[in-house]
Design a protein around this nucleic acid. Structure first.
Lengths: 236, 236
DNA sequence: CGGAAAATTGAATTTATTCAAATCCTGTGG
DNA sequence: CCACAGGATTTGAATAAATTCAATTTTCCG
């Protein structure tokens, strides 16, 4: 909730500053806002679930969300964390499939949502939205390709280091010393993001804590020396 | 080259039947075709390389291509195989970044390409192209998310089984007994697709060969009992 | 204060990698 | 036509990384 920028208010539009609507003209933004709905999110609740028919397009306004995919055998993977300004649930909508993952709120928050029909109407009316969507989805594809390569080729320690750095860098802020990851996150969550077990994550983080690289508590993490983590991640 | 459908010729348009232009009107297809260039591909050559500035959008007409990403340490990962009708090099173009991977021809083939400017012109002129692109990119994101989960949670044997089935199913054909993977592929390639080593792949495939599930040769594979592989992949 | 979820940690085990040789193809040049 | 060079594949043995199993401890909330 530290995440929400005041600039959004100053600008007069909650939706300016979002990746998908950010560059729209004033009047378009008005229109988009007018046909949106608000949906408060309670920490731990899910906005939609894997397998549900995709009927809404969403932008997170406040709080944090994790996208979780569960395998037929019941094993979970955290695909991605979403912060304010980011869209989600979009691909399923455009591709007319079911949601491929579950959106779980990690803090209390607020989402803006549009029905499928409304979203399609907006897309027809303001073609820039389509171009933006293509860029966003393309960017996510590229990021996931890199993470796929990392998961394929790198050991756990590196992957955990990368994951922590990525989480800390979330809204594009440079990661300084003593940067805190500003939403609650467990060892299990980190394990599900890095493709390992909570035990291994715990061991790795304990070691780092001993070396002074991080400080950790229950559901909390501070990167004390992110630069050292970068060195682990990138092997300089 | 067995891959190219005669129907494409009958229809009169090489580009009908492609995922990105398939649903365009006759005249639009003509236009798109007119402003395209052809580029023959020699097996083993690369159409573009990771890190090159993205200046072309491509559709494969004949042959096969693999998209390879290489890590700073030199380890390779095969992100995806591409068959006739599929586009590639698109995201980098729309996002104005460098190519995030290298496109290597696995057989002789033929690609249609468009320059960035031409592609942008077409995109403005025929908005359906944008919608198609969004669907294609979205679909690839979803597929990669599933593969990411599999890589995270499943053991090597399963992942190899899945990979072989996916390769055999390529252009959407149902996989019958004795389906051959119709392009040259090494143990190393399979390892780079599944996130393991060629040694482990070799062991797994040798065992399957002993059980009569597959027949294999140098750079060649036949799935003799794909159903049994599915059982390994999905644990029925 | 009590209970439950989160985290830590040791020991045993497993899976897959790494290291190290052989062996098998296949296309090429003599 | 055949030998051969080099890539592809196979396979064994040793090793390493991470998981699994099994407690125990810590922390937070009510």
């Amino acid at each position: 909730m530290r995440w929400i920028g005041k600039d959004r208010q100053i600008n007069g539009h909650i939706l300016s500053g979002t990746e998908i609507f950010g560059n729209l003209a004033e009047e378009a933004l008005d229109h988009v806002t007018r046909v949106s709905h608000r949906r408060p999110l309670a920490a731990g609740s899910s906005l939609f679930r894997q397998g549900d028919p995709a009927d809404a397009f969403c932008v997170l306004l406040e709080g944090g969300i994790k996208m979780v995919q569960i395998s037929p055998e019941g094993q979970q993977v955290v695909l991605r964390y979403i912060g304010p300004g980011e869209m989600f649930g979009a691909v399923a909508l455009f591709c007319r499939t079911d949601y491929p993952a579950t959106a779980v709120a990690v803090t209390d928050g607020l989402a803006a949502i549009w029905s499928r029909d409304t979203a399609e109407m907006l897309l027809r009316r303001y073609p820039e939205i389509g171009a933006n969507a293509l860029q966003v989805v393309g960017g996510r594809l590229q990021e996931l390709q890199s993470r796929y390569r990392e998961l394929s080729t790198e050991n756990v320690e590196r992957r955990v280091a990368r994951t922590l750095l990525r989480l800390a860098a979330r809204p594009g802020r440079p990661v300084a010393d003593d940067t805190r990851i500003d939403f609650p996150i467990s060892r299990q969550d980190i394990a599900e993001m890095t493709g390992t077990t909570l035990h291994t994550v715990s061991r790795v983080i304990s070691r780092w804590e001993g070396l002074g690289l991080v400080a950790s508590g229950r559901m909390a993490l501070v990167l004390r020396r992110p630069q050292a983590l970068s060195r682990i991640a990138d092997d300089l």
